[in-house]
């Protein structure tokens, strides 16, 4: 970045934004259109948020021509990056911004979901807060609908407010066809092939929650997005606990059967 700052005489040939988005660590950003940046309405309120707002804006739009010492330049440079980020958060929820981010999403520019059962589904950048300098950027997986930390430390340092809390959700509202199919595939902890009681009980409870949700959605005639059909849901309900018949559970699983003897067995195995 210092290289650029030093060659102040060629501002209009080396575009600051080009340099910014192609520099290391800034892979998550897309390029903001000149038109968007020069429309003052889009920058409402940012002048109080960013130091040396006018100089920073000049730098971002490649019309910066202030003679100043290196220290000052560094400060302005920092402000410019900050300003770019804040405008970025607004830009990426516009139609053009969404389209640009979508391209990056399809190219897996934001990385892939680390969760094994998501099978490397592409991620989207997001913030947990819209207030700057609050929380660093996180990555959202649309398949498991959870939030992950970026792998690289240079990404972990980016402000989450440069992407905002709404962008990734707006993207799927704008492109509902891109919502990935959901899957109930999951990891089940086992010891020598046997499920572990505590984890298995939680899994059963979670499966019940999922089936309740799917039934709720079916009643409202909303597509649940799960790959298997609703008929499977009814089947699943019948043998909720026999997802994989080949496997047994480590401790005797309670199946709602009649048993005082089972109860004594359970306490027996604990004592």
């Amino acid at each position: 970045m210092d290289d650029f700052v030093s060659e102040s005489d060629s501002d209009y040939t080396s575009y600051w934004r080009d340099w910014f988005i192609s520099s290391r660590g800034n892979e998550y950003f897309c390029e903001i259109d000149e038109d968007y940046l020069t429309d003052r309405f889009n920058l409402t309120g940012l002048n109080t948020e960013v130091q040396y707002y006018q100089y920073a804006l000049d730098l971002v739009t490649d019309v910066f021509d202030l003679d100043c010492d290196d220290e000052m330049r560094e400060t302005i440079e920092k402000s410019a990056r900050n300003l770019y980020g804040l405008v970025h958060a607004r830009y990426i929820v516009t139609t053009r911004g969404l389209a640009k981010m979508l391209e990056k999403y399809k190219k897996c520019d934001f990385g892939k979901c680390p969760r094994v059962m998501c099978h490397s589904h592409p991620l989207l950048p997001m913030g947990l807060s819209d207030i700057p300098h609050h929380k660093p950027v996180k990555l959202y997986c649309a398949r498991c609908e959870d939030v992950y930390n970026p792998k690289s430390t240079r990404h972990a340092a980016i402000d989450g407010a440069f992407f905002g809390t709404s962008f990734h959700n707006i993207l799927f509202q704008a492109y509902p066809q891109l919502v990935p199919p959901k899957s109930s595939e999951r990891y089940i902890p086992r010891v020598y092939g046997f499920k572990v009681h505590a984890a298995a009980a939680l899994v059963r409870w979670q499966n019940k929650e999922r089936n309740d949700m799917r039934r709720r959605l079916r009643k409202m005639e909303v597509d649940s997005g799960f790959k298997d059909t609703d008929e499977d849901l009814d089947l699943e309900e019948e043998d909720e606990e026999e997802e994989d018949e080949n496997d047994n559970t480590a401790m005797v699983e309670y199946r709602g059967g009649p048993s005082a003897s089972m109860e004594s067995h359970m306490t027996g195995s604990v004592a």
């Binding site: 409870w205 929650e209 597509d223 799960f226």
Partner: peptide, 16 residues
């Protein structure tokens, strides 16, 4: 939840 893009996977991270 009724939206096409609404949450569907919260069960996976839920606990009673």
């Amino acid at each position: 939840e009724m939206a096409k893009s609404g949450p569907r996977m919260q069960w996976l991270r839920k606990k009673p």
